[in-house]
Nucleic acid binder design. Structure first.
Length: 909
RNA sequence: GCCCAGAUGGCGGAAUUGGUAGACGCAGCAGACUCAAAAUCUGCCGUUCGCAAGGAUGUGCAGGUUCGAUUCCUGUUCUGGGCACCA
């Protein structure tokens, strides 16, 4: 009987489906475990081998926890709103809903082939009205809430209104004044408090295309489609007040098991700093220039000011002489994306002709504009201290601005020194004070003078929450006379209407602005961004069909936090921060019982593509030269489909058949007649012809082989290029495992023999290793220890059912199909999915002696077998008697002997 | 530019707490079985000197700490991810 994996896998997938083997019950008496993957965006390209890496890891862990007796929730769904579907609709006229459904069907078929244990009854799709009804509902909760800074939590906005009605807001208006305000006025004030609010933001605007572009669609300041100029345009936008949660998002990091790198990325993104906001009088005007600085102690070292070119202040302070230069520079900056501005190495800027006055000595400080100062951070203006800040120093040098020194010998004039350890010089009233103490003194003085305050600042900005797009959740908002009103909850979902054209609406509005009925109802024409649906989807899986509420509180109390969340680091600061914020809001409003969504986060690495190239001669487009001699010609590298290249050797016949233009290709080969391709690691993408389809591998080798091979590639967290070579080895392993049970000629070879000590030792060592490795997500080493144990059981000719049965349970999470089949063949009547994970027994692994490595001066020279319980003196004397040691000692006594019990011996001479 | 991560044989990787570098697998080489092939099995397999025994050298690069460093520290190079409208 042979290992017919195709029959076995198809058969079991069918049976498991039929028996609802993966249906999850709300058995509140069982301990729960929630394993979640970041759900995919169902792109038209289908699944490639990079997607399943994390899914396989989570599937293994889910199945492992199930064997360990947990009630495991392991759902899957689709993040099905998004730009590519809309783009595709623009190009082909097909409705995004249609193409999205088609793509989802493909994804599901592909996922099912790999044998995942999803409970598809719980599938969610963010573009399904039954789902986004609740996305809209949560948006309304955000809209109807404000952040109470005293209590550091969200509350219903009605509470804020009643406090305005009874006590005003304390400073700006009284209760009486509030009551006299017009409705529009009241709403405008409330808008400043809502967690979801409207404001003005800048977008990438392309006049020619008449549309707003994503950063992705802008290349070098031009639109990707058509290459038209892109400028920034101010538009009304929705925002989420995530900055109010900055501190809690920071503190929450201490309560979750994310990698240190992940925590650091998030905390850098939030970018909390403390310092002061200082207002400088602009010379000969009544204007004040307010800067944010973390170093108020350096105020006497300020040699110039830099303000963001887009600030309105620029226009009011620029001098007549500088006006033309300033306007030209502002125009230049308008054409630059924020990314370009931040990564520009070339120094640029323009003097405004205006001066600010140092409040302590009245010194006139020139005010410049430069693209490296961004309007969105701090006050959009900085005080530049070239002796203490590298960028300021370079700027001063470049523009020949004289540099003052306030830190004495700490500043050489060659480079800035950001030290905080200097004693201040040339610093007026803080002369002679250590910098660390001076900050405090300066802030107090500024506060006294009424021109400065202590200020905590965050780099993080409020999250832009609207898109001028069609394929997203409509906002449940109507506009009446410029005031936004929420729709009644009972009218949800506000269904995305059908459109005939996906072209943008007038004045940068989205396609919804083209629908007369929509506009007539004064509905918001923006839609929500891609991350709206993904900010709370982990909750909906718990209670996916509830039509009364987004998720029943009793149910969310049971399933609680996601115990293990698996996904890529590319979501480090986007999705993860947004979903953490939403969770905190829902918690504050009492809708759920926990305020961090993900207890443990595992980041899977990205599987990159390994591209292959042929080199076409520039002078003759029909000739292709092998990589070995390409330098002798003038060539163009062309991507070729990796599936027709064996390692680096091109299948020349397949290449000729690949595209008609290559049918008569002529090859300049290596001396042995082979055509060798060039190789490069790049992102896996259809356009680079480096994608490998999991379906084909499942067909050829089976899902179990594919699963184990993906794990065997290396640590899940690590990024690596895909290479199909090597999958044979894993397949061979499964066949070898099969042969422990069945012989092709003889049939069953497994027996009821009592296992010997050697077999038990192999089994129990494997139990321990698989359990340890699985717990620490070291799936690659787990696969390797399966290989080792099968090799060893084969070597000792062990076919004992008692051993093999336990091994199958261990293998179930990794290779469920073959495990279930062999389990059945051994005569079991229940599914191996519900078996109990074996318990490791230490007594089989007790050793009494160890082969110790013997080093001389740290270099391995020999080894000696020693009893583990031997005392140090005896060990040392035995080691010294060893002839290799004696040879190295040359009769002299050793300087030192280091004996680490159970590890090694090192003789120092 | 800024933030984060990574680098070990021909290749993917192992070494879990500073203690035998290269487990396991791929590729390769030699052999067994076979009419032949496939499948399977056995042996070899970092580099280098040596007939061998054995030695030297070796974890991106340059230093340092230590009896001992792939592991810790400093600097540096390259590669990957993110940088707020791709998801």
């Amino acid at each position: 009987m042979e290992y017919d994996f195709r029959k076995i896998e198809a058969g079991w997938q069918e049976k498991w489906k039929g028996s609802n083997a993966y249906a999850v019950q709300h058995d509140f008496t069982k301990p729960k475990y929630y394993v979640l993957d970041m759900f995919p965006y169902p792109s038209g390209a289908g699944l490639h081998v990079g997607h399943p890496l994390g899914y396989i890891a989570s599937d293994i862990f889910s199945r492992y926890k199930r064997l360990k007796g947990f009630n495991v929730l392991h759902p899957m769904g689709f993040d099905s709103f998004g730009l590519p579907a809309e783009q595709y609709a623009l190009e082909t006229g097909q409705h995004p809903a249609t193409t999205t459904q088609k793509n989802i069907a493909t994804f599901k078929a592909q996922l099912d082939k790999i044998g995942f244990c999803y409970d598809w009854n719980r599938e969610i799709q963010t573009s399904d009205p039954a789902y986004y009804k609740w996305t809209q509902w949560i948006f309304l909760q955000l809209f109807n809430s404000y952040f109470d800074k005293k209590e550091n939590k969200a509350k219903p906005i009605s509470e804020l209104i009643s406090s305005f009605e009874t006590a005003g807001n304390g400073t700006a208006f009284s209760a009486t004044e509030w009551k006299q305000y017009t409705e529009a006025n009241k709403q405008a004030i409330l808008m400043n408090h809502r967690l979801a609010y409207c404001g003005i933001g800048e977008v990438n605007w392309c006049e020619v295309l008449g549309t707003v572009l994503a950063n992705d669609e802008v290349v070098n300041g031009m639109s990707e489609r058509g290459g038209h100029p892109v400028v920034k345009k101010k538009l009304r936008q929705w925002y989420l007040r995530i900055t109010d949660y900055a501190d809690r998002l920071l503190e929450g990091l201490d309560t979750v098991a994310f990698s240190d790198a992940m925590k650091e990325m998030q905390s850098n993104w939030i970018g909390k700093s403390s310092g002061a906001e200082i207002s400088f009088q602009v010379q000969d005007t009544s204007d004040m220039l307010t800067v944010y600085t973390t170093r108020p102690d350096t105020i006497f070292g300020v040699d110039f000011m830099v303000i963001a070119p887009e600030l309105d202040l620029v226009n009011s302070i620029k001098s007549v002489e500088q006006a033309a230069a300033v306007d030209a520079y502002v125009d230049y900056v308008k054409s630059r994306s924020e990314r370009e501005r931040m990564s520009e190495k070339k120094i640029s800027g323009c003097f405004t002709g205006a001066y600010a006055l140092n409040p302590f000595n009245g010194r006139a400080i020139p005010i410049w504009i430069s693209e490296y100062v961004l309007a969105g951070y701090g006050t959009g203006a900085i005080m530049a201290v070239p002796c203490g800040d590298e960028r300021d120093f370079k700027f001063a040098q470049y523009f020949n601005i004289p540099i003052s020194n306030i830190i004495g010998s700490h500043f050489t004039g060659e480079a800035a020194n950001a030290t905080k350890d200097a004693i201040l010089e040339n610093s007026g009233f803080i002369d002679g004070i250590p910098m660390r103490e001076a900050a405090e003194v300066v802030i107090n003085k500024l506060t006294e003078m009424g021109i400065g305050i202590r200020k905590v600042n965050y780099k993080m900005r409020d999250a832009a929450f609207s898109r001028q797009r069609y394929w997203g959740e409509p906002f449940p908002i109507t506009w009446k006379e410029g005031v936004a009103y929420p729709l009644d909850e009972s009218s949800l979902p506000l269904v995305l209407p059908h459109v005939d054209s996906y072209s943008p609406g007038p004045d940068g509005q989205g396609p919804l602005a083209n629908i007369p009925e929509w506009v007539a109802r004064e509905l918001e024409t923006n839609t929500m961004p891609g991350y709206a649906g993904s900010s709370w989807y982990f909750l909906r899986y718990m209670d996916p069909h509830n039509s009364e509420t987004f998720c029943d509180r009793k149910i969310s109390d049971y399933w609680n936090q996601v115990d293990l969340y698996i996904g890529g680091t590319e979501h480090a600061v986007g999705h993860l921060l947004y979903s953490r914020m939403w969770t905190k809001v829902l918690f504050d409003l009492g809708l759920i019982g926990f305020d961090e969504p993900f207890k443990k986060l595992l980041n899977q690495g990205m599987i990159q593509g390994s591209s292959r190239f042929v080199y076409r001669l520039k002078e003759d487009s029909n000739q292709f030269v092998s990589a070995g001699s390409k330098d002798q010609y003038d060539t163009v590298a062309i991507h070729v489909d990796v599936n027709m290249v064996d390692a680096l050797e091109l299948d020349m016949e397949a290449f000729k058949k690949w595209k008609p233009e290559f049918a008569t290709a002529v090859f300049i080969t290596e001396a042995d007649g082979k055509y060798i391709c060039g190789a490069e690691v790049e992102k896996m993408s259809k356009s680079k012809f480096n994608t490998v389809n999991p379906d084909e591998l499942c067909n050829k080798y089976g899902a179990d082989t594919f699963r184990m091979y993906e794990m065997f590639l290396g640590p899940v967290e690590q990024s690596k290029p895909w290479d199909t070579k090597g999958i044979e080895g894993v397949h061979r392993f499964l066949r070898k495992l099969w042969r422990l049970f069945f012989d092709e000629q003889k049939g069953a070879v497994w027996n009821q023999d009592k296992p010997n000590d050697a077999a038990n030792k192999i089994l129990h060592r494997t139990i321990k290793k698989i359990e340890d490795d699985t717990e620490r997500f070291s799936f690659n080493t787990a696969v390797s220890s399966f290989m080792i144990s099968v090799n060893e059981l084969t070597d000792i000719n062990c076919h004992s059912r008692e051993i093999l049965e336990q091994l199958l349970i261990l293998l179930t999470p990794y290779a469920p199909h073959i495990a279930e089949e062999l389990w059945l063949q051994l005569g079991n009547t229940t599914s191996v999915l519900d078996a109990t994970f074996p318990v490791y027994q230490a007594n089989y692994l007790v050793e009494s002696s160890k082969e110790y490595p013997i080093s001389i001066n740290g270099k391995l020279r020999s080894s000696i077998l020693l009893p583990l319980d031997m005392d140090t003196a005896s060990v040392e004397s035995l080691v010294l008697q060893n002839e290799v040691v004696q040879k190295w000692l040359e009769g002299k006594p050793p300087k030192k002997i280091i004996y680490v019990k159970g590890k090694m011996v090192n003789v120092v001479i």
